[in-house]
Computed example of a mutant assay.
Amino acid sequence: MRARPGSKSSQAAAALLLAATTFPAMQPASAADACKGTIYLTFDTGSQSQAELIADTLRKHRIKATFFLANEKTVRGDWSLDPSWAGFWKARAAEGHAFGSHTFDHVYWKRDEAGGRMVVKPQFGAHAGKQETWTPQQYCDELRRVDTRFHELTGRRLDPIFRAPGGHTSPNVLAAANSCGYRHVGWAKAGFSGDETPSEVYPNALLLKRALGALRDGDIFMAHMGIWSRKDPWAPANLEPLIVGLEQKGFCFATLREHPEYASYFKQ
């Protein structure tokens, strides 16, 4: 059946065409070809509306990515680290992806205080929306809550990395996390997917063109597994065209376990 203009399928087809026409003379790198560079795809939890699509797309292209997990409200009406998501996370672990903490209650840093303390604001959980002053130990405990739940769901542990919500860190946050074995991972400027921005201002075609033109070897790319506020979701239109376009440029993909800035940390 032919996709009607404006439909999700026609938008995805248009995005794939954009990726193909942007680099028409290039072909996907074969296994025998050396990679011209490596891109590190990372995904933070979110509404989880795109979780299955992301998993299917990565599997289709045989790509390993890195996921940062928080216990967020999902479009199913449950939470992303509920037992109902055990099968999903077990499958991703079996596929060889890497996993880090995103703080259990998606806790935003607000400011540092004396003595290593920090003011934070959880987005979810019993203290959602309330500013609290935490000690370094409390921040460590929050990071480890994700590890504990992930182990309950999958039988394996997180990798020794975390991503602060919004990417907002501070000397106290980093010191606290390092004291309990977690290293922070941000993303490259060119690696910001823009999936949190208003689609009316930053349409998917613009975001795709920007990423394909700007990403370079070693860049960490960040997107979410669903954003509540964006009217035209990023992943259905852009994820596969982005992968195809990068493959046509000769890029390969890997988890942060292989990233030169983080590989040694994984071995500690």
Score class of each variant (00 low, 15 high):
235 A>V: 13
138 Q>P: 08
175 A>V: 06
268 Q>V: 02
138 Q>W: 00
115 G>E: 09
200 E>W: 05
124 F>V: 02
129 G>P: 04
65 A>V: 07
89 W>Q: 05
46 G>W: 07
192 F>C: 11
174 L>T: 11
57 T>P: 10
201 V>H: 14
12 A>W: 07
233 P>Y: 01
268 Q>L: 10
131 Q>M: 14
247 E>S: 13
15 A>F: 08
216 R>E: 14
264 S>T: 09
200 E>M: 07
191 G>K: 01
147 D>V: 06
102 H>R: 08
165 P>N: 11
114 A>H: 05
67 F>N: 03
150 F>R: 10
9 S>Q: 13
224 H>P: 04
195 D>K: 09
48 Q>W: 10
36 K>L: 08
45 T>V: 10
147 D>L: 08
137 Q>D: 15
261 E>V: 03
223 A>M: 07
101 S>L: 07
171 P>R: 09
192 F>I: 12
81 L>Y: 11
262 Y>F: 14
67 F>S: 02
211 A>D: 10
134 W>H: 05
141 D>L: 13
85 W>S: 07
21 T>H: 12
258 E>Q: 15
117 R>K: 13
1 M>L: 15
225 M>C: 10
62 R>V: 10
241 P>V: 07
205 A>L: 00
250 G>E: 02
122 P>V: 02
160 P>M: 04
154 T>S: 04
70 A>I: 03
111 R>E: 13
251 F>A: 02
238 N>F: 02
97 H>F: 05
191 G>C: 11
35 C>D: 08
128 A>D: 08
28 P>M: 09
65 A>C: 04
16 L>D: 11
120 V>C: 04
99 F>M: 09
207 L>F: 09
234 W>V: 05
52 E>G: 01
57 T>N: 10
231 K>P: 00
143 L>Q: 06
48 Q>M: 15
210 R>F: 08
37 G>L: 02
179 S>Q: 13
104 F>D: 12
182 Y>D: 03
126 A>S: 12
34 A>L: 09
14 A>E: 15
135 T>L: 07
86 A>G: 10
79 W>Y: 15
221 F>C: 05
120 V>P: 06
132 E>W: 04
194 G>S: 03
192 F>N: 12
93 A>N: 06
83 P>M: 14
201 V>A: 15
84 S>M: 11
72 E>F: 08
67 F>K: 03
51 A>L: 07
256 L>V: 03
13 A>T: 13
228 W>E: 13
241 P>A: 11
94 A>P: 01
190 A>Q: 09
89 W>P: 03
141 D>P: 11
137 Q>L: 13
120 V>W: 01
35 C>A: 13
241 P>Q: 10
74 T>A: 04
193 S>P: 07
230 R>M: 01
126 A>L: 10
211 A>F: 01
4 R>Y: 14
219 D>A: 06
144 R>L: 14
188 A>S: 14
